[in-house]
């Protein structure tokens, strides 16, 4: 399981970095999204990977730490998702503004000279 998650995070982040370095703002947006997915997954796995263990205390499950997953990284991921989503949305607005004012979707606001 660790290997699968690690490869998934690596592929997501790698694709994200590649897209971030592209010259078009839309590609940069998608790159930011992919990288933020990778980061969110990464935070989640930092609470160690558990199968079939709830992060909340339940009736019937003994109150023993080994029976529960670490709830904190899950809470952190929620916060990180919300913040990442909001800032990406903000970036989209700037992207549209830049497209409208400069008439191009190049990240430098003008087409490179050929």
């Amino acid at each position: 399981m660790e290997v699968v998650i690690a490869i998934a995070i690596g592929v997501l982040f790698g694709s994200g970095v590649w897209l971030l370095l592209r010259p078009r703002t839309y590609q940069v947006t998608i790159g930011l999204l992919l990288a933020s997915y990778a980061v969110n997954l990464f935070i989640f796995t930092m609470g160690r990977l558990w199968v079939d263990k709830p992060p909340l205390t339940l009736n019937g499950v003994p109150t023993d730490l080994s029976q529960y997953a670490d709830p904190l990284p899950q809470a952190l991921v929620l916060t990180a998702i919300v913040i990442g989503f909001a800032t990406t949305a903000l970036f989209l607005v700037v992207l549209l503004g830049s497209r409208g004012v400069n008439g191009t979707d190049h990240v430098d606001g003008k087409e490179p000279k050929r």
Partner: peptide, 24 residues
């Protein structure tokens, strides 16, 4: 707009590093 675009992208990426560092 041009400077703001760069500023936002750089800081968003820096925030990713922040998150990775904190979770590690």
């Amino acid at each position: 707009l041009r400077a703001g675009l760069h500023y936002i992208v750089i800081n968003l990426v820096a925030s990713f590093f922040f998150l990775i560092g904190v979770s590690l």
